[in-house]
Design a protein around this nucleic acid. Structure first.
Lengths: 156, 156
DNA sequence: TTTATCATGGACATTGTGGGTCTATATTAA
DNA sequence: TTAATATAGACCCACAATGTCCATGATAAA
């Protein structure tokens, strides 16, 4: 259970875009050189981000990528869901086994779907995780970086 | 990014053990039949749980598995870490790229390790997740199941 | 002591997916 | 028109998840 490298690449690419916002569109060459990832692979990731409306892309000379909306409106959750997909973290593969019957045995005779209690806990965990990831944005990382720089400067 | 089926199996196996605690040791046959998973595969999972001190196993006639400690002392996190491993959820593969230099560029000249700010956020997320998973135990699932049964009974 | 019952560990097969490259094609600015 | 750029698709490889099978070892009951 780990986040993929693609998520890592996507996050850093977006941070770079946010940081170069004012200047110009950022081409795949520049991104690739900055992150140390091949152009081929990185462009796959950027395409995904475009398809989901996180970035815009313009082809042709002086083309490249830019954020499709302000950096404070791009959350960690947004990015992760684009790259990792939106399946739930945990799915009980056990729905019709005897296990769930066991857990509800005295309750009996209820015809409706019996929900898996393990899944219920895990879904709770996932909701918490999502909330945390919604509270952190590309912009919040930039702010943190600037704050750190300022701190460094003050110390000097 | 999903939890493996093995984690699912492990959770349900432990719940079954907790539920049958008073009676006798539970053999792999019974577990296998209850969960609908092959004995071969399930025994691999049970071995892992034993190696990490979650369950005890006794071979021989009338042998089988039992919880190695009370169900309220076996957390979701315990089980997940046994099955999924203990690597962190997110690792920045980018430590010496130009990206991190960029983020600290005005701060400059600090020789020490520059921590990845993306990783920092993700580590925070992981800590939250872990805390949630520590707060839920095998016993808490059983309690929930019993509560549900009682509720059903009252309605009748 | 023997034997039936149980768990363990290793070897192996299969499949899917993450991670990655390469090439052809479409689009745009100069 | 041409050079620069993104896009889409065809491939590739390595590795992990999932699973089976078999030999071995430990144990209690007979």
């Amino acid at each position: 259970m780990q986040f993929s490298k693609s998520t890592d690449y996507a996050m850093h690419a977006l941070i770079h875009l946010a940081h170069s916002e004012r200047r110009h569109n950022v081409g795949i060459k520049e991104l690739s050189a900055t992150l140390g990832v091949s152009e081929s692979y990185l462009s796959k990731i950027m395409s995904k981000l475009r398809q989901d409306g996180i970035v815009r892309a313009v082809p042709g000379v002086n083309g490249g990528y830019e954020l499709a909306r302000p950096a404070e409106q791009i959350t960690f959750l947004d990015v992760i869901q684009v790259i990792e997909g939106r399946q739930q973290l945990f799915e009980c593969s056990n729905s019709n086994s005897r296990q769930h019957g066991m857990l509800a045995e005295e309750g009996a005779a209820r015809p409706g779907k019996s929900e898996c209690l393990v899944e219920k806990v895990m879904d709770g965990a996932e909701r918490h995780l999502h909330q945390y990831l919604r509270d952190h944005t590309i912009q919040s990382v930039l702010d943190e970086a600037f704050k750190r720089c300022g701190h460094e400067a003050n110390k000097k």
